[in-house]
Design a protein around this nucleic acid. Structure first.
Lengths: 341, 341
DNA sequence: AAGCAAAATGACAACGTCGACATATTTTGT
DNA sequence: ACAAAATATGTCGACGTTGTCATTTTGCTT
């Protein structure tokens, strides 16, 4: 591997001068600079980050710790957001996956320490409360798509489930619907409660009564192995005498099943029943016909702005608020239209 | 940051002895070892990988280059597979994303070189033909979920679309179906052709004639912005006088739309029509009711075994064949049952 | 043409680690 | 008890960089 000394020799200058050229330092004669750059190109010299890191004790590297990267489709967008930010700021990204295993996590923190990582983005693949266990040494850390237990005060960045659900509910109300069904997410998910609460509050504000809404549990049980009640509950809800004209679903997967149940009952979407989801899992929301009106989880932004926050934290700038919530915009597509009546 | 000399001083031994303990070298008195280990724990010493790397000119690091990590759900499983293998072999993983941008890719190869990466896994998010542009220096590289243009001979690891589609077709035939519809993937995808060909070959072997099968195009146009014909084509196919009893779909997304179309026509699945997909995108395949019979893309294995191949390549062991295809197992669920007639 | 400040370049050490080799200590065989 | 072999520990330098400071060269003023 060609080193800075090789370049120096070939260019007939000292290695320090090469270093100056490489790092764009001032006080290098244009002619020298040109010469050195040419030699660098000829020899294909690329600076050795490890050596640089040893000398300057800076690594210019972030670490990403994920729990289960792949259980939620598109959550990879978070990682992409981080990467884009990293690239724009000439940072390198190290990746590790805990699989939700405590020992493995400890091991990962150690590895990160051994690389003298400058900061960690702790990414959860579904929105929840967590407690990182970094061990003895503390590395600046930002929580992404999750927030810390109240006791330990990591800054975090999360989707605003409440706002998303509220805006989505308003969207449905604005289309004239006054009888609305609601299919709940697994209550164990952090988003479930917030989304439901936002629905309840918004519907109450609009003057609907308890009799106008029909809330049912779609899923329950341990995450990853839940009991799925959506299909049955939807059938029941839509077979009743006084069925809702709009159906709000805890997420897009539930919406998918609602589609199947409604269609199976001979109902047309959206003519007979409007349906909205949540998350905007595009494999589902765009594949459904009509395409699904839903609220989008801002995965990419979560990653990008999380990385931004981490940098500020490292540089010692104060991080405005401990928990930052990013909006979930309503994506209006064809599945929710004016109430027929 | 505490270094090896700090430990040596505190333990009253030379730094070389500490190094020996840390690296598990022989010829250290048990008492010394215990003492050193204790001091390491007390001081929270973690070896500095950068320094180690400078000294030994080995980085123990792999790089992953992805094109667009997030357009395909679950393709993150590839990354997880790589990570697991890396962890088991005490390797670190560097991650970068090209977004299919040539300049960005060059930049990434440079970054990887600067980290003296030992090998690269070039991961494509959908199965296709690619040509990496590593620039001047060559780093051992394995292509994952894609294969090289014939000219440049990178080893690769890919899903066996042909075998998957063949086995799936056999599965359908074994359930007695003799009139089969087929909804094609976007022909621009590498898998499209292979899956269709396998279908054709298998169906011919089974003695079906051209009249028994009905092949239609589901999607076309540039990837990521395709025209979607699935819904309409399925309606046409299933409305005809002599409709098929089973419907094979290019992938699970197409299957989802086929469900919707079939249900919209008042058909029951699987009583009136059996449907199978391909890929096993679990957000779709498990959310469908009945759950979807499909062939699973072996994403995790692709990553894990790709990393394994890369290691062998680096160690100079010969890599058996240039292109390695991993089976796509048939996942039988409820959507394909015995032909009714 | 001398004098001087500013600009350009270089010499050298140090970052943390480990390999090569040297030295010290213990064990073994007689 | 003594040499020889085996085990245990230490010294020193090098990996590729860059920071510090010293030295040389350049451009400008008078």
């Amino acid at each position: 591997m060609v080193s800075i000394v090789d370049v120096a020799k070939a260019a007939g200058v000292s290695n320090k001068t090469v270093s100056r050229v490489v790092n764009g330092e001032p006080n290098v004669k244009p002619a020298t600079k040109t010469k050195v750059e040419q030699v660098i190109r000829e020899l294909g010299y690329v600076p050795n980050m490890a050596a640089r890191s040893v000398r300057s004790s800076r690594s210019y590297t972030f670490g990403i710790i994920t729990d289960f990267i792949s259980t939620t489709p598109y959550s990879g967008d978070i990682v992409r957001g981080i990467q884009d930010w990293a690239e724009q700021n000439r940072l390198t990204v190290l990746l590790a996956n805990t699989n939700d295993d405590r020992d493995k996590e400890r091991e990962i923190w150690r590895t990160f320490q051994s690389h003298r990582i400058e900061g960690v983005l702790y990414v959860s693949m579904y929105h929840r409360e967590i407690s990182p266990s970094p061990g003895a040494v503390s590395i600046p850390t930002v929580l992404v798509n999750c927030h810390p237990e109240p006791s330990n005060g990591y800054p975090s960045i999360e989707p605003d489930d409440y706002q998303g659900s509220r805006d989505l509910t308003r969207h449905v109300l604005e289309h004239g619907h006054r009888k609305i069904g609601y299919l709940r997410l697994n209550p164990r998910l952090l988003g479930a409660e917030m989304r439901l609460e936002a629905f309840r509050d918004t519907v109450r504000e609009a003057g609907l009564s308890e009799a106008d809404i029909d809330i049912r549990l779609g899923m329950e049980g341990p995450i990853g192995a839940e009991t799925n009640l959506v299909f049955e509950e939807t059938r029941k809800m839509l077979s009743g005498p006084d069925r809702p004209t709009a159906l709000m679903c805890g997420n897009d997967e539930i919406a998918l099943q609602a589609y199947l149940a409604a269609l199976g009952l001979g109902l047309r979407i959206p003519e007979d029943i409007s349906i909205v989801g949540f998350d905007d899992f595009r494999t589902v929301s765009l594949a459904l016909k009509p395409e699904l009106t839903t609220a989008a989880l801002p995965y990419y932004e979560l990653g990008y702005r999380g990385a931004e926050r981490l940098t500020k934290l490292i540089e010692g700038q104060d991080v405005p608020s401990d928990r930052l919530a990013l909006p979930c915009p309503v994506i209006a597509r064809g599945s929710c239209t004016q109430e027929p009546g």
